[in-house]
Amino acid sequence: MISAKRMVKLSALALAVGLGAPHVRAADDVHALIEAAKKEKPINVYDSTGKIVEMAEGFTKKYGLKATGVKVSANNQLEMIIRESQADNVQGDVALITDTPAALAQLLPQGFVQSYLPDDMKAKIPSEFQNPLAISTNANVWAYNTEVHDKCPVANLWEITEPKWKGKVALVDPLTKSTYTDWFNQMEKHADGKVSDAYKALYGKPLQTKEKSASAAWIKAVAANAPLLVEGDDPASEAIGAPGQKTPFFGLLSSAKFRDNKDKGYKLGLCKELQPWVGWTYTKLGLIASKTKSPNMAKLFIRYVLTEEGITPQMKDGKLPTNIDVKMPADEPSGLVAVSNRLFAYEASTGLADFEHREEWQDFWRLNYSK
Rank of each mutant, 00 (worst) to 15 (best):
T312I: 08
V53I: 03
S290C: 05
V24A: 10
V337W: 10
A216V: 00
A102K: 07
S73V: 00
Q362W: 04
G18E: 15
P206C: 06
L285N: 15
A191D: 12
V337M: 04
T98E: 11
L320A: 07
H31S: 11
K62W: 09
D260E: 14
Q245F: 04
N225Q: 01
T350N: 14
V326L: 12
G69N: 01
D120A: 07
T98S: 14
D93V: 00
K371I: 03
I288R: 06
L336H: 09
Q208V: 13
A191L: 05
L270I: 06
G286C: 11
A345R: 14
K124P: 11
A102Q: 05
K272P: 02
N185I: 00
A37L: 07
K151C: 12
E79R: 15
A226N: 08
Q106A: 01
D234H: 03
A298V: 07
S136Y: 06
K371T: 10
S294D: 10
L229V: 06
S85W: 02
N296M: 09
Q130V: 06
L229N: 11
V45A: 03
L343A: 02
K212M: 00
L268Y: 14
P206H: 04
L287S: 05
G50N: 12
Y63Q: 13
N341P: 01
D197M: 07
R83W: 09
D192T: 02
K220W: 00
S237W: 05
A36F: 01
F250K: 11
I82P: 12
F112D: 13
E356F: 04
E231D: 12
N145S: 08
K291C: 09
F249Q: 12
L229G: 09
M121N: 05
D317Y: 06
A102G: 04
T209S: 06
Y144E: 08
E356D: 13
G351D: 03
V30L: 13
T146G: 03
I34D: 10
L287H: 08
L157H: 08
R83A: 15
Q314I: 06
C152K: 10
L65F: 10
E162Y: 02
T292D: 13
A223D: 06
W142V: 04
H23I: 14
F250G: 09
A4M: 09
G92P: 10
L108N: 01
W218E: 00
E159Y: 03
V278H: 13
E273F: 01
D173N: 12
S334D: 12
P333C: 10
D28Q: 10
